[in-house]
Write a protein that binds this DNA or RNA. Structure first.
Lengths: 199, 199
DNA sequence: GTCTATAAACAGATAGAC
DNA sequence: GTCTATCTGTTTATAGAC
């Protein structure tokens, strides 16, 4: 265990600040969070934020660019490794876990989306970050749905439904029972398959 | 055209402030909007807000309680009046219109949801407001889906998917073509119907 | 590289005038 | 009922110490 170089120390501080920022922004929002609060949550003081980032908003944008989709991408990878026949079930369990266990995920995603909507200059960047996991999912869907365009449509639907149900479950768990997402996927793919035969 | 009574004048001011607040909160967020900004947008000054509402946060909560779902309820009514065979198409057009024409709707809904998530004491109120349109939709779905539990599940799915696709289209229109929502509904109901026969 | 102290701006809320 | 003036607390951002 060797000593950290100056650059490594700075990089470590940077990562810790980003971790803390993710938590605080999720809990208080971009406008509601103060720089002081984020620094304190990371174990530093205000100065560290300004020496590593331009300010609060730049810190938020960095967070969006670097981490907006890594959890989602990881999820897609998990699904990719699941047995094809079990993919619906795996996605269903993932939704329950994200909605019930990861309290910060959905609010932070909402903050990112709001920022993109309110700051057109960042919208394309945000959209591209979100396309990444969608491409992963499309490849996955393509295994069982040969038509490429239809696979793309299905993956948009699956992601939108996932996000919608996660948010719904957060505020009204009874309306989104554990098995609902998996069931919806089964119906969706069954219906899409039936459509294939008579377009 | 008779003169307004004192109570009527106050009620009018109140409504104007709520209208302005809806716009400003949608565009800047709860924390990002200032009371002064809202008052000005309504054509009044700060004092009017404090004489009609307890303050910024109370104004926001009133807005949530009184108007969080009226647009959604109206949408459900429109669908209820459509021909059953055309319901999917009507919903599809509604999504396009909401996503493309009403710039404030989705951001304001996101703000409401974030507030509910961050303020547990209001979460049940918010959830109840959201259950209202869902009940309307469930009655509608029940016309073609006899099983009551399944109709309830389908209406949760339809609403979550609607919200998810609206948000997705706002930031990446190409990933949510005009006909996507209608198509998803057709697949969904076809699949659910097929499920009916072999549970 | 990070911290402490401070400057400068701003926003929420109130009191009293009209 | 609403407006103007003001008080108070908080926040961002910076400058200089270590």
């Amino acid at each position: 265990m060797t000593r950290l170089t100056r650059a490594e120390a700075k990089a470590r501080t940077r990562e810790r600040l980003l971790d803390a920022a993710a938590r605080v922004f999720a809990q208080k929002g971009l406008a509601g969070a103060s720089v002081d609060e984020i620094a304190e949550a990371a174990g530093y003081s205000i100065g560290a934020v300004y020496s590593n980032f331009g300010g609060k908003e730049q810190l938020f944008v960095e967070l969006l660019q670097e981490r907006a989709n890594d959890r989602v991408n990881r999820a897609a990878e998990i699904i990719a490794e699941a047995e094809p026949a079990e993919a619906n079930g795996a996605l269903g369990r993932l939704l329950v876990e994200v909605a019930d266990k990861d309290a910060d995920f959905a609010p932070l995603q909402a903050e990112f989306w709001l920022y993109a909507v309110r700051n057109p200059e960042l919208m394309e960047t945000y959209a591209e970050r979100m396309r990444e996991p969608r491409r992963l999912l499309t490849d996955l869907v393509a295994r069982s749905v040969p038509d490429a365009e239809r696979a793309g449509e299905l993956s948009s639907i699956v992601i939108a439904l996932f996000q919608g149900l996660v948010r719904m479950r957060r505020v009204d768990p009874d309306s989104v029972p554990d098995e609902l997402f998996g069931r919806a996927l089964r119906w969706l793919f069954t219906g899409a398959e039936a459509d294939e035969e008579q377009p």
